[in-house]
Design a protein around this nucleic acid. Structure first.
Length: 199
DNA sequence: CCCTGATTCGC
DNA sequence: GCGAATCAGG
C-alpha cells in the first residue's frame, strides 16, 4: 500500500478528529500504526493541537552543552504562571442548613414514576443466578470512564450517569462482545425466556 | 497486559 | 519517503 492522495486525506481527517494512530491504520488497512505515525510526522501535523506559539524564540539561553546524551532538547517552557491562591473550595456545597428533619440523602429520581429503564437488569426476570453473578462482578468492576473503554473491555454501565457514582464495568470482555461474561449473560437473553412485556 | 504517540535509522 | 523497531509513557 502507498500513500495515495485520498489515503493521506483520510489520514489527515481522522487525525484531526482525534482518532488514534492505530484506529486510523485499521481504517486505512494495509498499514500499521507505526506507518501512520511516521506519516503524520512527515506531514508535519504531529501536533494535533497546533499552538499559536507567538513567541517562538524569546529565550537566548546560553546553556552549555551537557552530555551529548541522545535526547533532543527539553524545550523548557518559561511560563510565568500567575497561580491563583486556593479560593477555599468553590466546589464545596454545604448541606442546606434550612433542613428540618427529613434527610435528602438520595437525589430525586430524574424519571418521575414510570419504568422506562429497560437495560437495567434489576427489575427484570433474568436468570436469578445471572443477576447474582452480575452483582458479584460489579463489585470487582474496574470502574472505567467512557474514554478508558476499549474493544476488549466490558462496556456495561454501572450506576446513575447523573451522579458521580457512575462508571463502566471495564472487566475483560468476551472477544467480539461488548461485555464481560457476566454482563453478556444478562444483556443477551435467548428469545425464549423473554415472553410478554406486561403492558 | 493493554494501549498511546515519538523517534531513530536502514531501506 | 517509508515504516519496523524501539523508546517513553499511561
Amino acid at each position: 500500500m502507498s500513500w495515495t492522495d485520498d489515503r493521506v486525506e483520510t489520514l489527515k481527517r481522522m487525525w484531526a478528529e482525534g482518532q488514534s494512530a492505530s484506529a486510523i491504520a485499521k481504517e486505512l488497512g494495509g498499514v500499521t500504526r507505526n506507518a501512520v505515525i511516521g506519516k503524520v510526522h512527515r506531514l508535519g501535523l504531529s501536533n494535533r493541537n497546533d499552538e499559536p506559539e507567538p513567541t517562538p524564540a524569546p529565550a537566548p539561553e546560553p546553556v552549555a552543552e551537557k552530555k551529548a546524551d541522545r535526547k533532543p532538547a527539553p524545550a523548557a517552557r518559561p511560563e510565568p504562571q500567575p497561580e491563583a491562591p486556593a479560593p477555599a473550595d468553590p466546589v464545596e456545597e454545604k448541606e442546606p442548613v434550612t433542613q428540618p428533619a427529613f434527610t435528602p440523602a438520595l437525589r430525586r429520581p430524574i424519571v418521575p414514576a414510570g419504568q422506562p429503564l429497560p437495560p437495567q437488569p434489576s427489575a427484570n426476570e433474568i436468570s436469578p443466578e445471572a443477576l447474582a453473578s452480575v452483582r458479584e462482578v460489579e463489585k470487582r468492576a474496574r470502574k472505567l470512564t467512557l474514554m478508558e473503554l476499549t474493544e476488549r473491555t466490558c462496556k456495561w454501565p454501572i450506576g446513575d450517569p447523573a451522579t458521580e457514582k457512575f462508571w463502566f464495568c471495564g472487566l475483560p470482555s468476551q472477544s467480539g462482545k461488548p461485555y464481560c461474561d457476566a454482563h453478556v449473560s444478562v444483556a443477551f437473553q435467548p428469545m425464549s425466556s423473554r415472553r410478554d412485556r406486561r403492558r
